[in-house]
Computed example of a mutant assay.
Amino acid sequence: MASRIRLEDHECPLSTTAQHVGEWWTLLILHDAFDGYTRFDQFQQSLNISTSMLTARLKTLVADGLLERRPYQTNPLRHEYVLTERGRSLRPVIVALAAWGNQNLTPEQRSMILVDAETGEEVEPVVIDAHTGRRLDDSEAFVFTAGRAASPAMRARYTELGRSRPRPTAKQQT
């Protein structure tokens, strides 16, 4: 995919992530991979995607380290596409996007839901802070600010927004 990232956004994790997974087909291929699809023909049949588009998307996903291309047959040579650890780490993002998509639908309108594999009960995914267990959807309690590697421009952005990073307490430094 051609880079749509602005020069000033190269340090922004949202911009760089969108460069890897922001393309519509990419998210759908990853969703299929999380459902266990590994073979070209499985992706193509599931998504009804052209051969050239699927080839390009898979090539990008392999180059980005999200899928690994492995031979599964030698005569003729055939490959499968298996999620890497980096690819598997995107699962919570895909789950959150699907949950957001279902958020304003009635249960009767939902064509895909997330369930507990053991009980079959529908679950409601939320994003929480690992340390406190607090939900991150409170935009007043949790805000972005410049990190340690931030450029002067990124630091200025958050200073202008009044979000200079507070000094860590003694407990946070340990």
Results as ranks from 00 to 15, higher is better:
R135A: 09
A156C: 08
T16S: 12
I5E: 06
R78A: 02
I5R: 07
R157H: 15
L47Y: 09
D137N: 14
S3L: 11
L54Q: 07
V95Q: 12
R88L: 14
T84Q: 10
V62G: 04
L28H: 15
D129V: 09
S50A: 10
G162E: 10
V127A: 06
R78M: 12
R165C: 14
H20W: 04
D35F: 00
G101M: 11
P92K: 06
L58P: 07
A63F: 05
L61R: 01
H10Y: 15
W100T: 15
V21I: 15
D41M: 06
V62P: 08
I49K: 01
N102W: 00
A170K: 15
R135T: 00
L28Y: 12
R155H: 03
M112E: 10
P152I: 00
L58D: 06
A153V: 13
I29D: 04
V127P: 06
D9M: 08
I49E: 12
R91T: 06
D138L: 01
P166W: 02
R78Y: 08
E160Y: 06
A146Q: 04
A141D: 07
A63H: 11
R6I: 01
A153L: 11
V62Q: 01
H20Y: 12
E118W: 03
S111L: 11
A130G: 03
A170Y: 12
V123R: 03
D116L: 03
D129T: 05
G120N: 08
S111M: 06
E122G: 02
Q42N: 07
N104V: 01
F144H: 12
G22C: 02
P168F: 04
R4T: 11
L61Q: 08
L97D: 05
S50W: 02
L14H: 10
E23W: 09
W24T: 15
E140Q: 13
R148T: 06
L105Y: 12
T174E: 14
M154D: 09
G87P: 04
S89W: 00
G162P: 09
S111P: 00
R69S: 11
D35H: 08
L66A: 00
L61S: 00
E23Q: 14
V82T: 06
S89I: 09
D138V: 02
A130P: 01
A56Q: 14
D138A: 03
F34I: 11
T60V: 05
P13C: 00
A18M: 11
E122K: 07
E85Q: 09
T74D: 13
S50Q: 10
